[in-house]
Structures are given as C-alpha cells and as structure tokens.
Amino acid sequence: MSSISPKVQNQIAQLQQMQQQMQTIGAQKNQYEMAVREARRATEELKDVPDENAVFMSVGSVMMQKKKEDVLAKLNDKIETLEIRIKSLEKQETMLQGKFEQLQAQIKQALEGKSSPGAA
C-alpha cells in the first residue's frame, strides 16, 4: 500500500466512503420495500375480512378501532408515500453507482499504469 501515491490513496478512501453510502441507501431502501410489502399484504388480508369484524389500527401507543375502509385508505396512503421514498433512494443509488464506477476506473487506470512493465 505504501507504493500507492497519496492521490490514489485518497481516491480509494473516497471509494470506500461511497461504498458505505451505497450500503446505507441500500439498507434504507430494503427497509422501505419491506414496509411496502407488509402494507400490501395487510391490505390483501383486510379485503378478506367481513365488514362487521372489528379492525384496529395503531395510533401512537394505543390501538384504536376504525372502519375497515378507513384503514384500507390509510394503508394505501402509506404504500404511496413509501413508494415515492423508494424512487428517490433509487435515484440516489443510480447517481452514486455512476460516480463509484467512474472513480473505480480512475483508480484501476492509475494502479495499472503504475504496475505495467512498459511504465518502468
């Protein structure tokens, strides 16, 4: 590692930082995707429930009895909001991926240029 120039070392550090950022974004996206799946599943389950059955929804720290259609509307809102957040994270992910690949190519070029026999 000591033979690598400070500039390339700095680029490698940036690359690692980007990788961490991408991991954080990926983890957040996963979390939202799971929440969407859960909400969709709950919606499907709720559709099978007879209208006269009691339905409760968490409001703060208590479970409140609600109308089935109100809960369905809230779940659909939740899905919509989460999908918007997922799309925004996907945009960030694509942008970072592009920068990452660019930097990776620069580092590769710098390292290969240094280690190639012709360079000596």
Partner: peptide, 21 residues
C-alpha cells in the same frame, strides 16, 4: 381472536382463521 396482520393493523377473526393465517 384479534390478529395482527402487519402494518400496525389488527383484525378480528375466528380462531380457525387465525390458525390458518
């Protein structure tokens, strides 16, 4: 029984339906 179906929603179902779920 009252069954938690996720997304912070709980519904009333028969015990058989809950077991099935």
């Amino acid at each position: 029984v009252l069954l938690n179906i996720g997304a912070e929603v709980v519904v009333e179902r028969s015990s058989e339906e809950a077991v099935e779920y």
